[in-house]
Amino acid sequence: MSGSRQYPDEPSGPFPAPPTTIEDREDRPIEIRAVGSFDEGALEDVVEMYLAFDPADRAQGIPPTGESRIRNWLETIGEDSVNVVASHDGDAIGHAMLVPDTDDPSAIEDNADIEWELAIFVLQAYQQAGIGTVLLENLLGHAAEIGIERVWLTVERWNNPAIALYERVGFESTGTESFEQEMAILLETEG
């Protein structure tokens, strides 16, 4: 799979990078930070968030439901993933992540060598408040800082609000589509 996708000709960026605190459209202070790989506390925060996640907003089987499956999913992708968390009053309410698209993450020498799959989830009570856009931009800003260039995702093709959000930051359709629309972005990096 690696290297097979169509990326935009022009890179996108620069994007803001965490940490940052914003006020959402409902005047709530939202803190955005990168958590690297999950340390104990960050993992627990995000597990709590996914326990509160409305299953109606699941996409293509994730997040899974039930604590053990949520934990198992996050631990499986956790070690080598790049994570940015949005919090309100100390509780995680949004999570965006990049997972390396490789069979052997330990062999990654340069983050630019491989493609990264993106996903983002925001708790229902915090949707439509501008948090998703900021969280997404900060994940991409953090990714560019650590040398990631190629990011892709799939989105259910009837999910127009999500597709519009991805297009706004610079994602383009790769042309591969069935039930899911595949999109990709090329990030502007220093090196």
Partner: peptide, 14 residues
């Protein structure tokens, strides 16, 4: 399954 764990159905399946 994608690296993320997303279920993907290809164009033939559809």
């Amino acid at each position: 399954l994608s690296p993320m764990g997303k279920i993907q159905l290809g164009p033939i399946t559809e």
